[in-house]
């Protein structure tokens, strides 16, 4: 029982590493905005959603796409999940920073949906994903739904934080 290494280090592995590098740099460059426990929860949401979907749609009997070189689980599949973690954090970071309200929230979700699609199109080009019955059109639905769920959890967490925060802890307005 082992976590496989790539069959050949080529485009898909480079893409995963570059993506991981970019998201890590952006995440660490952003000034801390959330209390530690809140930031951890936001990182968890992206990881949870990506992993849940890939562990269901990417394996038999459903098996709609292959991730990286093999049908088995490999190291770069794991790295890919970590980048989704940063994706959801950056998404809520700017949502919170710009204090979006009303229609601008919808447009923000739509913009991130398209960003996700473009990123996935590149990932397909570099053979990170090999579709076996999936298409970018389905990904559009997936991203919009995942971002809406994340948005709902963001508002829920913000309300819960205001209700339960300690007097001495950081403000999150």
């Amino acid at each position: 029982m082992k976590l496989y290494l790539p069959q050949q280090f080529d485009g898909n592995e480079s893409f995963c590493l570059i993506l991981l590098g970019i998201t890590a740099v952006i995440t660490f460059m952003l000034p801390p905005r959330f209390p530690m426990i809140v930031a951890t929860a936001f990182f968890s949401i992206g990881l949870g959603i990506a992993m849940y979907v890939d562990f269901h749609l990417g394996i038999p009997p459903i098996d709609l796409y292959r991730i990286n070189d093999r049908d088995q689980y490999e190291l770069f599949d794991l790295i890919l999940f970590i980048t989704y973690s940063a994706y959801s954090y950056i998404y809520v970071y700017f949502l919170d920073k710009w204090k979006l309200r009303g229609m601008s929230i919808s447009l923000y979700v739509l913009a991130w949906t398209f960003a996700g699609i473009v990123l996935e199109a590149f990932a397909v080009h570099f053979h990170v994903y090999t579709y076996k019955g999936w298409s970018l059109a389905y990904s559009f639905l997936f991203y919009i739904a995942a971002l809406m769920v994340t948005l709902y959890i963001y508002f829920l967490m913000k309300r819960t934080y205001q209700q339960t925060k300690r007097d001495s802890s950081k403000d999150w307005t």
Binding site: L3, A41, S44, G48, F55, L78, T160
Partner: peptide, 30 residues
């Protein structure tokens, strides 16, 4: 359990459970 604890722990449990299941089923075929 606080909501934040619940979210993080749920994802953590999914993470270890699914990773091990994938390793055992897909890689080792046990």
């Amino acid at each position: 359990l606080h909501l934040f604890e619940g979210i993080i722990i749920w994802v953590f449990l999914l993470f270890i459970e699914n990773n091990v299941l994938w390793l055992v089923c897909m890689n080792a075929k046990l």
